[in-house]
């Protein structure tokens, strides 16, 4: 078995962290986390502004099998717009934008991570436009990543399918 990837998770808040850290454990038993401080205003902007530094570090230590997982909520912008914003942040910092060959996964839960949690845990149709944030229970937060890992079809939302594909950038495997 090849060496495991060492993962840095860059995310907006604790709810994103608690979901994606469990996914990242598939690749690294002890992923490291950088998370936006509470109360700073736009956590998405914090992630974007720190993305360039982490991308630079990822490139410097690429031979060490380090991986970078970036998480920002899609909100009303959506997946493509968020990824473009991150590309622009890299370019503005004097870096080349993310390449397909790099171990950098960008996950954009849309509308937000709670949309995924309800789509994973509940029966029914859910969309990426409505906001389910206030309805999620602690139990749903806890069990959602486990279900997501155990069932590829657990969440058919486009942003979720895109994230599964993004994770293949870490080591060619889907989580």
């Amino acid at each position: 078995m090849p060496d495991r990837v060492r993962v840095l998770l860059l995310c907006e808040d604790r709810d994103q962290e608690n979901f994606f850290r469990r996914i990242c454990r598939r690749f690294d038993k002890r992923p490291r986390v950088r998370i936006a401080p509470r109360g700073i205003g736009s956590a998405e902007r914090w992630v974007r502004e720190n993305f360039a530094d982490e991308l630079k570090a990822q490139r410097k230590y690429a031979q060490e099998r380090v991986g970078l997982v970036v998480v920002v909520d899609g909100d009303v912008q959506g997946v493509a717009a968020r990824k473009k914003q991150l590309d622009d942040a890299a370019i503005n910092a004097g870096l080349q934008k993310r390449k397909k060959s790099e171990r950098v996964a960008i996950c954009v839960p849309t509308r937000n991570i709670e949309t995924w949690v309800v789509a994973i845990c509940r029966d029914g149709d859910f969309n990426e436009t409505d906001d389910y944030k206030q309805t999620v229970t602690p139990e749903e937060y806890r069990k959602a990543p486990r279900i997501w890992l155990g069932n590829e079809n657990a969440c058919p939302l486009p942003s979720c399918l895109d994230a599964r594909q993004e994770f293949t950038r870490l080591d060619g495997q889907r989580p």
């Binding site: 808040d13 604790r14 962290e17 986390v33 950088r34 998370i35 936006a36 401080p37 509470r38």
Partner: peptide
């Protein structure tokens, strides 16, 4: 501090 700053400080 940098990890728990995401919660309430």
């Amino acid at each position: 501090i940098d990890y728990l700053a995401a919660d309430t400080t």
